[in-house]
Design a protein around this nucleic acid. Structure first.
Lengths: 187, 187
DNA sequence: CTCAGTGATGGGACTTGGTCCCGTCACCGT
DNA sequence: ACGGTGACGGGACCAAGTCCCATCACTGAG
């Protein structure tokens, strides 16, 4: 088992998730993580900005959302474009085979304030990505921000359900959630 | 100038804001902050959980929002209750005399990722507070979350304007922003 | 086959954030 | 005058994160 094993970032992420689940985030050292992955602290920080990022690094969610919104049919309303983005996420990120991983990751994040904080920041990035993509379609500033915010809420709700007992396909859950949010927003 | 000077937390906050503005967040040590306030590192961490919190500690915004939503007239619709909360914030938090302080604080936070991250977490706490207060009024789960999210967006927009060149009163700016958001959400 | 270049890794010194424990001093009531 | 309480000072200590340099595996040219 050499110095040249491939996929260092992935090995580190898996090791980190395991250790966080076993003994908790604050009882796990970066050195612990690196050791389980057969690496060292130096290498860890070469692949991740900090200890929290090891659970968020692989995420290209912002890019997926942005691209899907931009690729939606020209005549689609803002919230419809957001709906397409939800489906794209279901296809490219929250797939059935990654559900178990996502569920564990979710519970680990929920248990530790530092990780929740990072997640909050990533959430802002997601809404910003959607909002920017909508503005790129010619949607006015405020409408874009509203649609992005409602889309983010729908994604959160769908993620709660999808990673909960229900299972099913994420894209559909997100579409349903988005429709419910739209109805709840009609005041 | 003794050991018994009052208002240690406030002195620390002011010292921190000054130093962050002067030399930047990462070029400022907790010891620097404590020294400028005439205190020590130990005392700093006795008043604040961590270095970031020194810019967020005084904030009872969540409580203000929560109370105001709960105190709104019984027959007020969710978004109207949120409107009352906005005015309460204008009265009790974002007052005219604190504007200068808020503007500086805002620019400091915007300049440093760690601080933006903490702000994102505080934002989540605010929407959660509003959402919970709305549910306490009997508003269904999803409607409460939507109204809270729209309220948070309105607050963000109003804050941008209020701390920008425009000035004026925060409560009014927030009410206007909330009305615009409501209009933009009518899809 | 050899050898130099490239890039990822190992390793250790160093700074700083954050925790812990304990001694000290000011205030307050008796 | 005296003891209790609570805030502060100070120092040891650990882990996160930075920096710099040595080392090793792979690659391609000769």
């Amino acid at each position: 088992m050499g110095r040249w094993e491939p996929n260092a970032p992935e090995r580190l992420s898996r090791a980190a998730l395991e250790l966080f689940a076993e003994r908790g985030y604050e009882n796990t050292t970066v050195i612990d993580i690196a050791q389980r992955a057969g690496l060292t602290k130096s290498t860890f920080f070469r692949h991740f900005q900090d200890k929290r990022e090891v659970l968020f690094g692989g995420s290209t969610l912002a890019g997926v959302l942005s691209d899907a919104v931009a690729a939606a049919p020209e005549d689609a309303a803002p919230l419809e474009a957001v709906g397409f983005a939800m489906e794209a996420v279901g296809r490219e990120a929250f797939t059935a085979e990654r559900r178990e991983f996502s569920v564990l990751r979710r519970s680990v994040i929920a248990a530790h304030p530092e990780l929740r904080e990072r997640e909050a920041l990533k959430g802002l990035a997601l809404t910003a990505a959607m909002s920017d993509a909508l503005r790129g379609r010619g949607v006015p500033e405020l409408q874009a921000r509203v649609a992005a915010e409602l889309g983010a809420l729908a994604m959160t709700v769908a993620y709660e359900r999808w990673s909960g007992a229900e299972g099913g396909e994420f894209g559909e859950a997100a579409r349903r959630a988005l429709e419910e949010v739209r109805a709840a927003a009609a005041l």
